[in-house]
Nucleic acid binder design. Structure first.
Lengths: 195, 195
DNA sequence: CGTTTTATTCGGCATTGACCGAATATTTCG
DNA sequence: CGAAATATTCGGTCAATGCCGAATAAAACG
């Protein structure tokens, strides 16, 4: 607990590129914390844990990959907590695990900073899988309902088919979104806005 | 607990339009349960509770608005649970609260069956609000960093601006999506696929 | 192959959240 | 306005989750 203020209480942590400790300039640190705080909030809203937002935020501002130990220092969480959090963040494609040549087994992490990339991966894997499962359930339900000749069955059938149409559209949308490059999609968006 | 099988254990619940009890045709009921089960799963995946998926599913298959008491019967949950669940589902724009003329205070609910509608409302309210909050945090961070003349600040500034660009795009996307009718967007999607 | 370094898993505690039934508030109707 | 019908809130219980530190496993190194 009391995680808000103790982020850099360990004092002289060696810094990545500029070489200086990063709690020197209080304004810079305040700016970072502002953004990281917003990320924590976002994480919470989108169904994740605040800690994930925090950890992602820490990574976001580091130029070079960060080791597990350094992350535990910077975040204030226990190593085990960070380890499991990293596993989840990796599954969400929000961070990447790196290994650094001279550093043995040590694991390093870096933030994926292109959100569109993250969204695409999520669509490709999680969302697509959900659509597939739903589609299978709908198909099976449709077959059962077609077999049963019943007034009740007719009404349900209509509703099931409505769902099938919507999920079909969803699937096509996902295909388009995951099949295009970021550039193509942004230019498309621009065109859209002007039309 | 044991929610899977006890949905219609109360026997003769009066049925809406067709007039017949709906656990007569086991095939029809099985089809429904298949779909409702998939909805429960989906709810879970998208960060909601299984019970919400279940309640939505029950509503989805009813032609006419359903009262709280009937929902309680059909779902097996306590009235208080259903009440709070409905409040949340309303906030998510997944169900609408209706009042029926002759029925006094009694509240009725019906499912919003057009998912795109749901998504648009969600974008318009929740997502937009999140984007706004993040944007404010980023602006403030940017100002602080512009004030501090520091090598460190430069690097952070770059990253903050990167976030601002991404969220700016996100906002424009949300605007386009919420500003267009379903028809326009589906036809657009079709065009997109063919290009 | 043992030792060292590092990551992961596990058991346990504290917090949170879901759900319930009872109590309370609100609305409608006579 | 009082009584009846209905919805909501509240306190409590149980399960799930987050987080920790210790124990274990896995990998790299000499």
């Amino acid at each position: 607990m009391s995680n808000g203020a103790e982020t850099n209480d360990t004092g002289a942590v060696d810094e990545d590129s500029s070489g200086a400790a990063d709690d020197r300039q209080p304004e810079v640190e305040a700016a970072r914390q502002k953004v990281i705080g917003a990320m924590e909030r976002s994480a919470e809203v989108y169904g994740l844990n605040r800690s994930y937002g925090r950890l992602y935020g820490i990574l976001y501002f580091q130029d070079d990959p960060v080791s597990l130990d350094e992350l535990t220092d910077r975040s204030g969480y226990a190593k085990s907590t960070v380890s499991t959090a990293m596993k989840k963040l990796e599954r969400l494609h929000l961070v990447h695990r790196r290994s650094v040549p001279g550093e043995g087994k040590k694991a390093f992490f870096e933030a994926e900073r292109e959100f569109w990339q993250v969204i695409q991966e999520l669509l490709r894997h999680e969302v697509k899988r959900e659509i597939d499962i739903m589609t299978r359930a709908l198909d099976e339900a449709e077959q059962r309902l077609e077999a049963a000749e019943d007034e009740r069955a007719e009404q349900d059938l209509e509703k099931v088919r409505h769902l099938e149409r919507m999920f079909g559209r969803g699937e096509r949308l996902v295909n388009v979104l995951t099949g295009s490059s970021v550039e193509r999609l942004t230019s498309l968006l621009e065109r859209l806005r002007r039309e």
